[in-house]
Amino acid sequence: MSDCLHVGTKKGLFTLRRNSAADKWTITRRDFLGEPVSMLFHDTRDGSLYCALNHGHFGVKLHRQEQGEETWTEIAAPQFPEQTPAEKQQEEEKEGRPNSWSLSQIWALESGGEDQPGVLWAGTIPGGLFRSPDRGESWQLLRSLWDRPERLQWFGGGYDDPGIHSVCVDPRDSAHVTVGVSCGGVWATRDGGETWALCADGMRAEYMPPELAGAGNVQDPHRLVNCPADPDTFWVQHHNGIFRTTDDCQSWQELDRVQPSGFGFAVAVHPQNPDTAWFVPAVKDECRIPVAGKMVVTRTDDGGQSFIIMSDGLPATDAYDLVYRHALDIDATGRNLVMGSTTGSLWVSSDAGESWQTVSQHLPPVHVTRFAG
């Protein structure tokens, strides 16, 4: 089990380490106290840690910590190019309002392939995808996706503007990248971002008029992940249920009769077994709390044909915790999970979710959790 994990919250970054003899986790470091952390990323290629901060009115900042170092270095944050008058008019005509093309949040950070040292990907709000060739020292907006006419039909889910929250790089081919957009569906490139294809066939958006429910460009995938050992298998926790594909996003199948709910935000997939995935169900739309006030995690081991409901160690009554998109993480063994909630609770499991240990009940609201390695 990884003995180190990072927890990004509304009021700072917390690093925890595990005493293996006592099987106890302890906060050992606190960084950026009082600052909202929107995203974390641990780059296993060189051991560096990246932390994105959302300062609201004062802008977005990005920091990097080198492996073995104590200090952080501020690096460049993605920036949108200046909008031309023609682009502003086009978006205003489509959206009914001008789009400022101004970065409000870094919502995804991922590395390029093993054959791309230094390459990073960033997904943002509004829905831009950025690439860095030099470990975040500089960033370039992929205009090939940004300039797609379909982007003008994207819209916000939980935020006013649409955003890219999931980036999956194929470990077999670094030029093959798939992203999830809320609300804009699933998009993929096979040539490093030169061209893009919409890949949401089979998804369903019940919040749209019936004739548009199946349109790929209006889908709201809350989180998109794929299995490292079988990259053609993807899982999506969608606003309207759980979806799975085994043919590299060519067609999606909705899972039926998911209990206690098919709604949620987070999903984790086993790193070696594409049929095993974890979810944190909730009541959707205006409510957004655990079903019947009972905190549970569900797991499927057979590709979604059946689900196990697991609650050992989790609050059974009067629980109002919601687990955000990036607040559930799994380590490389596939046995150890961590999740944090909107009420500041933090839990870990060392037996694939069968039982959970409470690490804290009074952190700030948790935005993202990451095992270190």
Results as ranks from 00 to 15, higher is better:
200 A>L: 08
203 M>F: 12
205 A>G: 10
205 A>C: 07
206 E>D: 14
209 P>V: 13
209 P>A: 11
211 E>V: 12
211 E>Q: 14
212 L>V: 03
213 A>W: 10
215 A>N: 08
217 N>A: 06
218 V>R: 02
222 H>F: 08
223 R>S: 08
226 N>I: 00
227 C>T: 12
227 C>K: 07
228 P>K: 10
229 A>I: 09
229 A>E: 13
231 P>R: 11
233 T>F: 06
233 T>Y: 03
234 F>D: 00
237 Q>F: 01
237 Q>A: 15
239 H>L: 12
240 N>H: 15
240 N>M: 13
242 I>L: 15
242 I>F: 04
242 I>D: 01
244 R>K: 15
245 T>D: 09
246 T>K: 12
247 D>H: 09
248 D>S: 15
249 C>A: 15
252 W>H: 06
252 W>L: 09
252 W>G: 04
253 Q>E: 14
253 Q>L: 12
256 D>Q: 14
257 R>E: 13
257 R>A: 12
258 V>I: 07
259 Q>E: 15
260 P>Y: 05
261 S>G: 02
261 S>K: 06
263 F>E: 07
263 F>G: 04
263 F>N: 01
264 G>K: 01
265 F>W: 09
267 V>P: 01
267 V>T: 12
267 V>A: 09
268 A>L: 04
270 H>C: 05
271 P>H: 05
272 Q>D: 12
274 P>T: 03
275 D>W: 04
276 T>W: 02
277 A>Q: 06
278 W>K: 06
278 W>H: 07
279 F>A: 01
280 V>K: 06
280 V>S: 04
281 P>R: 10
281 P>Q: 05
